[in-house]
Nucleic acid binder design. Sequence first.
DNA 1: ATTCATATATGTAAATATCATATATCATTT
DNA 2: AAATGATATATGATATTTACATATATGAAT
Lengths: 126, 126
Amino acid sequence: MNSVNGAPFRSRDFGTIERFVEPCILLLLSKEPAHGYGLLEGLETHCGEKVDVGDLYRTLRRMEHDGWVSSAWDRKENQRDKRIYTITEEGSAFLKHAVASLRETDELIHHLFSGYKKVYSNNKTL
Amino acid sequence: MNSVNGAPFRSRDFGTIERFVEPCILLLLSKEPAHGYGLLEGLETHCGEKVDVGDLYRTLRRMEHDGWVSSAWDRKENQRDKRIYTITEEGSAFLKHAVASLRETDELIHHLFSGYKKVYSNNKTL
DNA sequence: ATTCATATATGTAAATATCATATATCATTT
DNA sequence: AAATGATATATGATATTTACATATATGAAT
């Protein structure tokens, strides 16, 4: 559903973290190099995200531009060409930073939760 | 700081939740109606956010347009005019929805944390 | 008289997400 | 053999949001 009491939501459902897919990608690439399409399943099962395919490819190029991953074509016979992405040291550093930032985000979220409980837990109208 | 190992960050620091200020505003307005500028302190102390003032006003107008808050001018003598915002029922409904969505976001974050620990906890290189 | 905090707002640019579309190959089905 | 679907990589166009700057005006304090 995309509305609450008739009030339309805007761009997307609430609560999404901008570029959250990036640390997810980096975590998957920390285990083993992979190509874009091959990351799709992993991103859903490991990171619980439905990633737009086009967005994924653009994100990977962006991350390569930022130096967090490097890519090389994998050309094998009887196989489609694949661009294989590998995480870089800078990528690991960013992943570490992202995890630390998400810890702060997590605290903010829980702060909101506790505030919400205080206001609404004893309110029978909701 | 705005970089990791020389790789520049992009728009803003990682980990921010889009429009997170909105449930924060709604939580504050759940306690008592307030005007835009008056919300600034509360947003920092209660929600741990440094909110751009201009952004705050535009957000409030947007939220009014969406029916989550209503506003009325407060014109008193020897005081500046203030536009007082009050939360609506739709606003409370959205706040409830936002909290539920943030619970899912929270799970995603913790899923990433546990995956990160598995990969990096025994790795001495980081 | 001037400066600072209060108070509300708009202009503009950049980054990101969403949705659609394009292209091509490999595998399977008819 | 032809057609379809899954694999694989990518771009175009649009909308939303954020960030930063700027504009305006009043009340309070120096």
